[in-house]
Amino acid sequence: MQATALLHLFQLASPSLPIGAYSYSQGLEAALEKGIVCNEATARAWIVEALHHVVARFEAPVMWRLLHAFAAQDLAAVTTWTERFVAARDTAEFRAETIQMGYSLTKLAIDLKVADDALRTLLEAQPEVPLPTALAYAAVALDVPHEAALLGMLFSWAENQVLVCVKSVPLGQVAGQRLLLSLQPELERAAHTAMQLADDELSNWSPGLSLLSMQHEVQYSRLYRS
């Protein structure tokens, strides 16, 4: 990868990207409240389970398709996968999360003028922009290779989950870094899965996670918005 594209990838995957990712746990806080996640081992088990059964089978392959759709300037494909992703958010918190972060990244990318008019038109044609759509748009606009962009998205998701565990289990900083290091082969496997799945193989079926998300909506004490 060229140095410029690599630096752009670092910027998109950075936790300092001002889209509010730090304020969401994607159901993990509810699992902490229930005692499902309580130490380093259970934290890793939670992240790996969510990675392979949810993210790698729906969120990542949707982004993979959006990367190709933006690169081909295919408005129909961008719209189809954007609408499907939003429709698949099965709780109020999960939907609000992706729309809020997608809106923030969209505004940032447009303000920074990272794309030409033709590419920006594809994005502005969407009534709602979830995070995978905004990420795919920014990655294509910044000439980040598709595979690298997908891995960046997966790493960013995993890092956010680890940071939630460091702050809320709590885990030490060394334990957090050990956990993140141990996830690298899992992230590679998840990326491979996402790139190989056919359209009719995509699924975000995870009733346990959905129930935890709904319970989190009425959880008495919470630090995160999902």
Rank of each mutant, 00 (worst) to 15 (best):
M214C: 07
V129W: 03
S182K: 11
Q100E: 06
I19D: 04
E29T: 10
V140A: 03
L180K: 07
T82L: 01
Y224E: 01
V169D: 02
E186W: 10
T80Q: 07
M195Y: 08
A60Q: 08
A3Q: 12
L212A: 13
R178A: 14
A43F: 00
A76D: 14
V140S: 01
G20Y: 09
N204Y: 06
Q196I: 04
A139H: 04
G152A: 02
V166F: 08
H53P: 03
A115K: 08
L131R: 06
A77T: 11
G208N: 10
T79M: 03
L183V: 05
E83L: 05
R84G: 02
W157I: 01
V48Y: 06
A69V: 10
D143S: 14
L12N: 02
S213I: 00
A191F: 07
A87M: 08
L51N: 03
A43T: 14
F10Y: 05
A3Y: 03
A149D: 04
R189T: 10
Q26F: 12
Y103H: 15
L212K: 07
L202M: 13
A92L: 07
V140D: 01
S25H: 05
P185W: 06
P18C: 09
L197G: 09
Q73S: 13
Q73L: 13
L197P: 11
T79I: 02
L180I: 00
G208D: 11
A115E: 10
Q73R: 15
E217M: 10
V129S: 04
A190R: 01
A148D: 15
E29I: 09
V166C: 13
G27D: 09
V169S: 04
L6Q: 15
A96D: 07
R225P: 00
Q177W: 09
Y137V: 00
A191P: 01
P132L: 00
A13W: 01
T98C: 07
S156E: 08
A3K: 12
L151V: 10
A88E: 09
A139P: 01
